Amino acid sequence: MSALTHHLPQLVDGLLSTCLLMLLSLVGALAIGVLVAAARVSPVASLRAAGTAYVELFQNVPLLVWLLLFVFALPEVGVIFPLFSTAVITLALYEASYMAEAVRSGINSVGRGQAEAARSIGLTTTQALRYVVVPQALRAVVQPVGNVTIALTMNTSLAAAVGVVELTHAANEVNLAEAQPIPVFVGAGLAYMAVTLTIGLATGYIERKVAIVR
């Protein structure tokens, strides 16, 4: 326990960095995921193909590989971002593929008549998705989006492999200094658990508040 108490500020900084990394990536993943989901249900074949290609590409390549590519390969072709920003972009792009599938399931749960009614009053397909279908779809997929957010929180730990100073990276540095892996990594694991439990409780609360009564 002395390792934890002695290095508590360092571990707290790592936890805050993890939370910031998760929140920024979540915003990006949700924004991209909605666009990809809309493309996947679009009547335009080329958009559907592009959306499907995006999902298949990111879901079938491990996140660690994407992190290594973005951090080490992109600078080789002149594309350079700060390390933390690179991790945010990579996580957002990767998790957006899962977010898109969650949102698409919500879109498919909205009655076909809703979109038809929207078009009958003069809305275009894009406007029908934006104002009628997607808002209802998002209300229907609060729990799946919460599950993706929990997975995203866990995946932030992989950013430590490319040098991002977050909770796992901080815990590893403390362990190297103190050589007490059990209390250090158990403490880090409990911190991750606290974050994910909070997300789960918040998701349940939001789901009850925005539930669509059919």
Rank of each mutant, 00 (worst) to 15 (best):
L26I: 06
R139C: 03
F58P: 04
Q180P: 09
Q114F: 01
T124L: 12
T5R: 11
S46E: 10
N60I: 04
A159T: 03
L190S: 05
F58R: 03
G33M: 07
L167K: 02
P75M: 10
E56R: 11
A161V: 11
L123P: 00
V110Q: 02
M1N: 10
A179N: 13
A137H: 00
A151S: 15
G111K: 09
I212F: 15
L67D: 00
Q114M: 04
F72N: 13
G204I: 04
A160D: 02
L201H: 14
T125P: 09
S85Y: 06
M22I: 05
L57K: 07
A96N: 11
P144M: 02
A170D: 01
A92Q: 05
Y131K: 06
E95Y: 15
L11D: 01
A140H: 00
W66Q: 10
M154R: 15
L57M: 13
Q180C: 09
V164R: 01
L123R: 02
A202P: 07
A49Y: 11
P181N: 06
T86A: 07
G113V: 00
L8S: 01
W66K: 09
A45I: 14
G146Y: 02
E95G: 07
E101V: 04
V162A: 03
Q143P: 14
L4S: 06
I121N: 06
V77M: 10
L197I: 15
V77A: 11
F185Y: 14
